[in-house]
């Protein structure tokens, strides 16, 4: 077994997810099945293979900062669950 129910609960906490016991159990089974299928990659010796994080090597995407038009407060806050018109409002942190 690759991942225990306890580890699933730990990963859920890292991902800011709350799982009920039934979901934890179901996911533990499914994740183990998927991770077992991933073992296939260990058939390959990749000790001297570089990693690809992007398929195309693009360069020159950087440019100097410049001021351009942006959204005003009303637009930026239009989808906010709660705001005071200037800032987003969230529940207490501590």
């Amino acid at each position: 077994m690759k991942i225990t129910a306890q580890e699933v609960a730990h990963v859920a906490a890292l991902a800011r997810l709350e799982l009920d016991p039934e979901m934890t159990e179901k996911l533990t089974g499914q994740l183990n099945e998927i991770l077992d299928a991933m073992d296939k990659l260990n058939e390959l010796d990749t000790s001297s293979v570089p990693s690809t994080n992007h398929a195309l090597e693009l360069t020159g995407a950087m440019r100097p900062d410049r001021v351009s038009g942006g959204m005003d407060h009303d637009q930026a806050l239009a989808n906010a669950p709660d705001s005071d018109g200037q800032s987003l409002v969230v529940p207490k942190v501590i």
């Binding site: 990659l41 390959l44 293979v49 690809t52 994080n53």
Partner: peptide, 14 residues
């Protein structure tokens, strides 16, 4: 073991 390895095998696929 996972993300690192997958990136290397991605090179082989490409």
């Amino acid at each position: 073991a996972y993300y690192g390895k997958a990136g290397q095998v991605r090179t082989l696929i490409k």
